[in-house]
C-alpha cells in the first residue's frame, strides 16, 4: 500500500462528506418554519433562539450560512436538543458506546459465524448440511430484523426464559465487576444474535460460493498433494481468497448494520442510539434526529474507505493507481 494511494483515497472522502453536510443543511432549510427550530428545537426562549441564530449565522446570506454550518459541525456542534436542553453531540456521544457494543458484537458473531457456516456447507456441497444452511440463511435474510427480534423474545426470552426480555442490565441490580459484565453479556446475547443473523446470511452466501470455487481449484489440490491436513487446507489455502470479498461486504454493509442496530435496540429496549432516535421522533426533537443522521452517514463513509483500504492490503494483486 503506497502512501500516495492512501492519501488519494482519503482525499476522496471530502466530497462525500461535503455532500452529506449539504444534505443536512438543505434539510434544515427545507423544514417547515424557521430553520432555527431545526437547530434549537421547538420550545426555546427568544434569547436562546437569538443566540443560535447568531451562532449559525442564520441572518447571513445562504452561502455564508452553509460555511458557518459546516464549521459548527466540524467542531462537533450539532445544535441543541429541545427536549433535554443539552448539546446534541453530547447526547449522541453518551449513546454511542451501547450501540457500538451491540454492533461490534454482532459484527464479530456474523463474521465468524457466517464464515464457519459457509465452510460447513461448502465442504459437502449439495449435501444435507449445505441445503439446510442455505435454506435457513435465505429465510433469515428475508425476515425483517424486528420480527426476528420479536420471535426471539417470544420463544427464547419470554417462552423458555433463557434470556432477559428487555434492557442492558438487570433492574435493581447492584452487581459490580465481573458479575456486572456477565449481566450485560446475558442481556447482550439475544439482540446481538438477532442483529448478527442477517449479516450471517450475507457472509455465509459469499463464503460458500467463494469456497466452492476454491475447493475445486488447482492450488487447493496442490495443498492437498503437499500432505496438508484437510483443516489446514481449508483455513490456510481455500478460505484465504473468499475472505477478501467477505471483508468488503462486511464494511459495505455498515449502514445496513447500523439501521438494523437501531431497530434491534427498539425491540430489546437496548439503551443506544436506537432508543434515543425513537424517543426523539416521538417528542419531535428534530435536532437530535438530524444529528444521528449526520453521525451515522459520516461513519458509513469512513467505514467504506476503511474497507477499501483493507481490500487492497489483503489482495497483493490489486494495483494501486
Amino acid at each position: 500500500m503506497t502512501l500516495r494511494y492512501l492519501g488519494w483515497r482519503l482525499l476522496q472522502v471530502v466530497p462525500t462528506a461535503a455532500a452529506i453536510l449539504l444534505i443536512g443543511f438543505l434539510l434544515i432549510h427545507a423544514a417547515p418554519g424557521d430553520p432555527v427550530l431545526a437547530l434549537a428545537g421547538q420550545s426555546g426562549d427568544a434569547e436562546y433562539y437569538a443566540f443560535v441564530r447568531d451562532k449559525f449565522g442564520l441572518d447571513e446570506p445562504l452561502p455564508v450560512q452553509l460555511a458557518t454550518y459546516v464549521g459548527q459541525v466540524a467542531q462537533a456542534d450539532l445544535g441543541t436538543s429541545y427536549l433535554q436542553g443539552r448539546p446534541v453531540a453530547e447526547i449522541i456521544a453518551e449513546r454511542i458506546p451501547a450501540t457500538l457494543l451491540l454492533s461490534v458484537t454482532a459484527l464479530i458473531l456474523s463474521s465468524v459465524g457466517g464464515v464457519a457456516l459457509g465452510a460447513f456447507a461448502a465442504t459437502r456441497p449439495h449435501g444435507l448440511r449445505d441445503v439446510t444452511a442455505t435454506g435457513a440463511t435465505l429465510a433469515v435474510y428475508a425476515a425483517p430484523v424486528f420480527w426476528l427480534g420479536q420471535l426471539a423474545i417470544l420463544v427464547l426470552a419470554a417462552g423458555l426464559g433463557w434470556f432477559p426480555v428487555q434492557g442492558m442490565t438487570s433492574p435493581r441490580s447492584d452487581a459490580t465487576g465481573m458479575a456486572a459484565a456477565l449481566d450485560v453479556a446475558h442481556h447482550l446475547a439475544l439482540p446481538a444474535l438477532v442483529l448478527a443473523s442477517q449479516e450471517i446470511a450475507a457472509v455465509f452466501r459469499l463464503t460458500r460460493v467463494g469456497l466452492l470455487g476454491e475447493l475445486a481449484s488447482d492450488h487447493v489440490r496442490t495443498a492437498r498433494a503437499k500432505g496438508l491436513a484437510e483443516w489446514r487446507v481449508l483455513v490456510g489455502h481455500a478460505l484465504r481468497r473468499p475472505l477478501i470479498p467477505v471483508v468488503t461486504v462486511i464494511g459495505g454493509r455498515a449502514g445496513h448494520l447500523l439501521s438494523g442496530a437501531i431497530v434491534t435496540e427498539i425491540v430489546f429496549g437496548w439503551p443506544g442510539l436506537g432508543r434515543l432516535l425513537l424517543s426523539s421522533l416521538q417528542s419531535r426533537d428534530t435536532p437530535v434526529v438530524l444529528g444521528i443522521f449526520l453521525v451515522v452517514a459520516l461513519f458509513v463513509v469512513v467505514a467504506n474507505v476503511g474497507t477499501d483500504l483493507a481490500y487492497r492490503w489483503l489482495d497483493p494483486r490489486v494495483h494501486y493507481r
Binding site: 439501521s259 437501531i262 438530524l290 452517514a297
Partner: peptide, 23 residues
C-alpha cells in the same frame, strides 16, 4: 459514477427517518 457512489454510501434508512421527522 461519482454521483452513483455518493448515493450508494448514503444510509437510506436514516435519511428516510430524518425526512419523516422533518416533513
Amino acid at each position: 459514477m461519482r454521483l452513483t457512489e455518493l448515493f450508494q454510501v448514503l444510509p437510506r434508512f436514516f435519511l428516510a427517518v430524518v425526512v419523516g421527522a422533518i416533513f
